[in-house]
Amino acid sequence: MNNYKKRLPLLMTGIFACCSASAEEVEPVTLKFAEWLPTTSFATEHGANPFMEKVAELSNGNIQFDFYPAEQLGRGSESLTLLQTGVADIANVAPAYMPEKLPLSGVVELPEIVKNSCSAADSFYELAQPGGTIYEAEFKRHGIRPLWVGNMGRYRILTNNKDIASLDDLNGLRIRTAGGPMTLTADALGSSPVTMQGSDVLTSLSRGTLDGVYYPLRGILDYGLAPALDQLVPNLSVGSFGLTYSISDRVWESLSEQQQDILLEAGRYAMQTYCDYVDSSEPEIIQVLENEYDITQAPFSDSDLEQAQTDLEEVYARWAEPLEARGLPAQQVIEEMQ
């Protein structure tokens, strides 16, 4: 964080220089923007779209985008390759889809790391900028840099036909997770983690072959899972899902300083717009889940939360140890995110 504070005056100087110059002077350029999420996604609506709009405003329309949502240029797991091969100039690179290439960036998938979307995004952004721990260990090696980052907020435990009155009630439940660190989390809490395609989750919940899910609250509505769920544990975060809107070094280095400053400023704007939505919308979404779908809240007691925190320390260690053995600063990343 101290490194970021040292870099901040330089970043702001560039931004102010950008804004003091006439937008008409910005050299025209069109960038190919690959997004695996659909246009209806809240990340597109509150992140990607505001980013492009802010860039257009700051450049007076001289920086434009050819926008390819909904995997038109490639799947989410291919986004890094799209940047490296020049198929795209900017892309939504999700570390969870490529854990072998961006393992440290999976830190946001650890339990209780994301307590709210904005603070986690700010912390990760610092680590993912030049000079930051994650940038130097991962992004730099792959020839990309994040313009802005985000996450899907806190993943919660939601169940179907299973009363969760205490932490012990999670024992043996078949829980669908997003894989990676969340698999470790389910295991540490005594549940049986299940990996399956998203399209199969609703059917499995309805048939009782799945007892519950780890999911972001907005995702419960977007993917139509609410009718098959009846309980929500609101006060334990079991992980999150990270997004990094990145540009290839090849393209970055071809841009003028003014163009770079505009992209950086628009990125910070979009990051704030998106995380503000994620954080501020949660109470309303919980009300919808309660009032329209009869999903009741089942918060853990203070003693259960304390026990859960103790159990989840094992997850941090199990995630960090193999990465440390590869020479990656996983423990440092955990501490800096916290």
Rank of each mutant, 00 (worst) to 15 (best):
A23F: 09
D261R: 06
F42M: 07
N116I: 13
V87W: 04
N60G: 15
D168Y: 07
I262Y: 07
T209D: 11
Q197I: 05
L229G: 02
C118T: 13
I262P: 00
Q84F: 06
A56T: 07
K6L: 11
D276I: 11
R318E: 13
A178D: 05
M98I: 13
Q338F: 08
A96I: 08
E100S: 13
L58M: 15
Q84R: 14
A226M: 08
V288A: 08
S301F: 10
D311Y: 06
V87C: 03
V201Y: 09
S77H: 12
W36E: 01
Q307E: 15
W36Q: 00
E126W: 08
L217Y: 04
F16M: 13
I63F: 00
T296L: 07
I247N: 00
E306R: 13
S280E: 14
S79K: 02
R250L: 12
S303Q: 14
N171T: 15
R156E: 03
E24M: 11
L158N: 02
R154D: 02
A226V: 13
Y245M: 10
A34T: 00
G132C: 01
V238W: 02
V278G: 03
L289Y: 09
T44H: 06
N92F: 05
G224I: 07
T296C: 03
M52K: 06
A330H: 06
K162R: 15
L189Y: 07
M337I: 07
G132H: 01
G327I: 14
G153D: 04
Y277R: 10
D66K: 12
I90R: 01
V29I: 08
D163V: 10
N161M: 07
L323S: 05
R268D: 14
Y277Q: 10
V149G: 01
A308H: 03
L173A: 05
T203M: 14
L37T: 00
I285K: 14
D211Y: 05
E313P: 02
G267M: 08
N171W: 13
A266I: 04
S123E: 04
T310Q: 15
P95Y: 08
W148G: 01
S199N: 13
V149E: 02
L8Q: 10
C118P: 00
R75C: 03
Q129K: 12
Y135M: 02
N171Y: 13
E265F: 14
T203A: 15
D211W: 04
R176G: 02
S105K: 04
A120K: 07
L102G: 01
L232G: 02
P322M: 12
V55Y: 00
C19S: 13
P299G: 07
P299F: 10
Q287I: 03
L11D: 04
T244G: 13
L264I: 10
L189K: 03
F33P: 00
G14L: 09
L202N: 11
P111A: 09
P130N: 05
A43S: 10
N3W: 09
D276E: 11
K115V: 13
S119A: 12
C18S: 14
R268N: 11
L229M: 09
C18V: 08
L104Y: 10
N171C: 08
G131S: 05
P99N: 07
V149F: 07
E53K: 15
E335Y: 09
E313H: 11
G61Y: 02
M271H: 08
E109S: 11
V93W: 01
S105F: 04
